[in-house]
Design a protein around this nucleic acid. Structure first.
Lengths: 210, 210
DNA sequence: CGCTTATGGATACTGATACTATCCATCACA
DNA sequence: TGTGATGGATAGTATCAGTATCCATAAGCG
């Protein structure tokens, strides 16, 4: 398969494919001569994955690269692989809330993790995001939202149970890792749109007259 | 309060505040003379909201503007206000999947909505995202993920229940609208980071040896 | 009153991101 | 043998989210 065919198969323009090759998102094709390479099903699949992540899940190209690299490194423990993908998904966003709000949020989260019995390493990037989010809610005068933290956490555990279940049937380790990553990322888009739909449905009934 | 003080109070640089003013994200201050305006607590609050949406929830400035506009239009029904905010949150993403996968996903979603008894208008933007996501999962060879659709939907309903509960205590309509919007958007960040943490915790235990 | 600093408003510039476009020396194939 | 595609390199573009600069004026100090 040559680049033109790859382009047709995935509906991605040739210059864009070249761009992904340059950026190292896509492995180079097998060179049969200095300007002739052939691509295969692996490339088609990878390209589709790249597009799903960038277009659907809005993941920046640089982070897609990190995610793919973590998928390709099957020499490290699975858990570490997942951790790397998580890290790529959580940009270091630092929102400036008041120190007090942050401190409060921090202890709220610590308490939550203890109550739930979660095992979290303190450097987990999602931890900082969670703390910032709760602090922001507080600062914006929505403390009632974070007071439902435990209930949310419980619902989230339910999700995660599903995430894991949906994935344990994968036969090989590589496929498992891939499913976890796809499930995590596209799952987020899935959950977000389901939530919007559910909200719309409920809000239509609930606030018809306001 | 002058612009310098506003800047200090929110930790947003003066040129950035001017940029938000230009873009219409922030209402102009009250002019006491051609080059002297005063800002108040409303501006502080609004600015904090803008920053939370852009920095934490990664919402593009143009969409923050639409969201704020929907919050400001208290002359339309609450449900319509929420709908506008939802629309601003769901960019029109293109479809990269095969027509067959899309058709399958479409009927899956239709069936889901019927089973759940949801009331959704066919133009709801989240609908297209949901369909595309399911089609993408299918195309990427992860049909097992979308087979859990109903279970996810149920968990999501649980969330939405919480979203609504957390918000009904708000006294005025304006506050209610604001809480719904903040709850929807920051809630998504909250859920996403909780999910990452729960996954990390579970995956550490589950796949220690792979 | 004068001097320094801040301000509102307009316009111009910047850096990052995600592509597109062009060029050229091959190369495959009709 | 010639026409079009290809790999690789380099350059250009559009958008986004600010930053920076300028200027005439106004505020606050001494």
């Amino acid at each position: 398969m040559r680049i033109g065919e790859l382009s047709k198969a995935t509906d991605v323009p040739v210059p864009t494919i070249k761009y992904y090759l340059r950026e190292g998102l896509l492995p180079a094709g097998e060179l049969s001569s200095p300007n002739q390479a052939s691509y295969d099903a692996v490339h088609v699949r990878r390209l589709r994955l790249i597009r799903a992540l960038t277009e659907l899940a809005q993941v920046p190209v640089a982070q897609v690269k990190e995610i793919l690299e973590s998928l390709d490194s099957d020499d490290i423990p699975l858990h570490e692989q997942i951790g790397r993908a998580h890290r790529a998904l959580t940009p270091t966003r630092r929102l400036t809330t008041t120190p007090e709000a942050r401190a409060t949020a921090e202890s709220q989260v610590a308490a939550l993790i203890t109550r739930r019995g979660w095992t979290i390493e303190p450097e987990a990037p999602a931890l900082a995001t969670l703390i910032d989010t709760i602090a922001a809610m507080e600062t914006l005068g929505q403390p009632h939202l974070s007071s439902y933290l435990d209930a949310y956490a419980e619902a989230v555990e339910h999700f995660t149970q599903l995430d894991i279940e949906a994935v344990t049937t994968r036969p090989t380790r590589d496929q498992l890792a891939e499913s976890v990553v796809i499930g995590t990322i596209l799952g987020e888009t899935l959950i977000a749109s389901l939530r919007l739909l559910a909200q719309e449905s409920i809000s239509a009934q609930r606030w018809k007259n306001r």
